[in-house]
């Protein structure tokens, strides 16, 4: 672990200020960051402890939505009565991730910022354009079993590993961000994470000095909410493929189809064309195949992860069938 300077922020402004100087990083629960510090994958000069900031609350908003403070633990969000009854896909996604012990530590903001578990990213003796720009990608010709099939680049095929953000993407949640000089901005979760492109070291749109303060959920919508995570073992494993879905029907027709996918890309994957193809249609298997075709038309496997393409197709169809009552 590289020696670092530890500062405790006593206000948001202070936190943004501390984070904008030197090579600083905010630390909440540290569930992912501390591991990476030990491996020296992360080598900040300064850690800014934001745990005393008053941003751990979960509160209903006037418009019926929900504001989840960036420091609200994964456990607190998953067991929140409002979340469980109104936005159950979020609770289910969180509970599908990590372990109880990790969820007790992990924060909402930190979870959004967790880094890929690509084997080559976490081994500092291996090439990785994300960790060491220009060093190459060990995964493309290496063990790529868990890697992305959508939105990859020749620089990086890593996946975003989380579950919570997949549900937030389906829910079209917003990320509230503070920065120095009391500037605030709001970014949709769907635009928060990036594709690797030529700058794979940038996981998301946060700039130096910016701190996530909250995630907001739009007001509840009707429909079935499903989070389905496919994995080798039934807990404490990252998704091979996951699907978050909010599907509503009226008069035998699909009226809502908010879908997001995990395990397939460098970000929670959302493709608005899928909803367009489904809405207004009567559900049946061929329609589901069409949705899957849209999802996967540009999918590219890297050998070991080729299986994710048919697996994503099958998982999407299973979720749509479950949500609409169609027998496959």
């Amino acid at each position: 672990m590289k020696p670092f300077d530890l500062q405790r922020a006593d206000s948001l402004t202070h936190a943004s200020q501390l984070c904008s100087e030197r090579n600083a990083k905010p630390i909440g629960g540290g569930a992912n960051l501390v591991d990476l510090l030990k491996l020296e994958v992360e080598r900040p000069d300064r850690l800014v402890d934001i745990n005393r900031l008053p941003i751990a609350g979960i509160e209903r908003m006037d418009d019926g939505g929900l504001r989840i403070g960036a420091l609200a633990s994964n456990t607190a969000v998953a067991v929140d009565d409002d979340v469980r009854s109104q936005w159950p896909v979020l609770s289910r996604a969180i509970l599908a991730g990590a372990t109880q012990q990790l969820r007790n530590r992990a924060t909402t903001g930190g979870n959004l910022c967790q880094r890929t578990r690509c084997y080559y990213f976490t081994n500092i003796d291996q090439p990785c354009n994300k960790r060491a720009p220009g060093s190459g990608c060990g995964a493309i010709d290496g063990v790529a079993r868990l890697h992305a099939v959508l939105g990859t680049s020749d620089q990086c095929i890593a996946t975003y590993p989380g579950d919570m953000a997949v549900a937030l993407s389906a829910l079209d949640a917003q990320v509230e961000i503070a920065s120095a000089n009391d500037r605030h901005r709001t970014v949709p979760v769907r635009e928060f994470h990036r594709l690797p492109g030529d700058t794979p070291w940038k996981d998301n749109v946060l700039e130096q000095g910016e701190v996530i303060t909250a995630v907001t959920l739009p007001k509840p919508v009707s429909g079935r909410q499903i989070y389905r995570k496919v994995r080798e073992r039934s807990s404490y494993a990252f998704a091979l493929v996951s699907v978050a879905a909010i599907i509503d029907m009226a008069d035998g027709l699909i009226t809502r189809a908010d879908l997001a996918f995990g395990g397939l890309a460098h970000k929670p994957w959302h493709d608005p064309r899928i909803a367009e193809a489904l809405i207004g249609k009567s559900p049946h298997e061929a329609l589901f195949d069409k949705a899957a075709d849209i999802l996967l038309e540009d999918a590219q496997g890297y050998g070991e992860n080729d299986f994710k393409i048919p697996l994503a197709l099958r998982t999407l169809k299973a979720v749509l069938a479950e949500a609409t009552g169609v027998q496959l």
Binding site: Q126, R233, S235
Partner: peptide, 28 residues
């Protein structure tokens, strides 16, 4: 679930912790 995965290029073991080497969890 259990499998050691070795890099095909230089032969190093890639999944060298208990998060990525999958022994059964209680739920399994």
């Amino acid at each position: 679930t259990e499998a050691l995965h070795f890099d095909p290029v230089d032969g190093h073991l890639v999944n060298c912790d208990l998060a990525e080497y999958h022994v059964p969890v209680h739920r399994d």
